[in-house]
C-alpha cells in the first residue's frame, strides 16, 4: 500500500535545480551548501537527513572524478550538476566534457592504497549509479531512494 502511495506522490511533487561550475575544487563547498539549501527548501519529508548525507558525498565524489580524471586540470571546462527531488527519491546528474567515467572495480582497494574509494562510496550510498556518453559529454546519474517498509 505504501509503495502505491509513494508512486502517486511522485506524480505530484517535483523540485529541480541546476548549476554549472568550472573544474575547480573551490566550488565543492558551494555544491554542499546548494544541496543543503535544496533539502531545507523541500523539507525533510522529501529530502530526509539520510538522503542529504548520501547525496552530498556522492555528488562530491562524482565532481572530484570530473575535475581530476575527466578534465585533468583543464579548469575552464564546465561541469553541469543537476539535482531533482521527487517523492521518495533524489536524483543527481553530473555532466562533464571529458573522457568519461573510469569503469573501476567497486571492490574495496587494499587498505593502504590512497585512491580507488570514490566509486565504492557512490555505489554504497546510492540506490543506482549509471553513466553514459552523449556526444562529447559524459554523464553520471545517481539516484537515492527512500527505503519503503512493508
Amino acid at each position: 500500500m505504501r509503495l502505491r502511495r509513494v508512486d502517486s506522490l511522485r506524480k505530484v511533487f517535483k523540485f529541480q535545480t541546476q548549476l554549472t561550475i568550472r573544474s575547480e575544487t573551490r566550488y565543492l563547498a558551494l555544491l554542499r551548501q546548494w544541496v543543503a539549501a535544496t533539502a531545507t527548501v523541500v523539507g525533510p519529508r522529501y529530502f530526509p537527513r539520510a538522503a542529504l548525507r548520501a547525496v552530498n558525498l556522492s555528488l562530491i565524489e562524482a565532481v572530484d572524478n570530473a575535475i581530476f580524471h575527466a578534465h585533468r586540470g583543464h579548469r575552464e571546462k564546465p561541469i553541469d550538476v543537476g539535482l531533482r527531488v521527487e517523492a521518495g527519491r533524489v536524483m543527481v546528474v553530473v555532466t562533464d566534457r571529458g573522457r568519461g567515467f573510469r569503469q573501476a572495480t567497486t571492490d574495496p582497494p587494499e587498505l593502504l592504497m590512497t585512491h580507488g574509494r570514490g566509486l565504492l562510496l557512490m555505489r554504497h550510498l546510492m540506490a543506482s549509479v549509471e553513466h553514459c556518453r552523449r556526444g562529447k559529454r559524459h554523464m553520471v546519474r545517481m539516484i537515492w531512494k527512500r527505503r519503503v517498509s512493508t
Binding site: 552530498n56 558525498l57 572530484d64 593502504l112 590512497t114 570514490g118
Partner: peptide, 16 residues
C-alpha cells in the same frame, strides 16, 4: 564534518 575519498587518501598517506 565532512570527508571525501581524497581526504581519506591523505590520511592513509600520512599513516604510511
Amino acid at each position: 564534518t565532512f570527508v571525501d575519498s581524497m581526504g581519506l587518501g591523505a590520511m592513509i598517506s600520512l599513516l604510511r
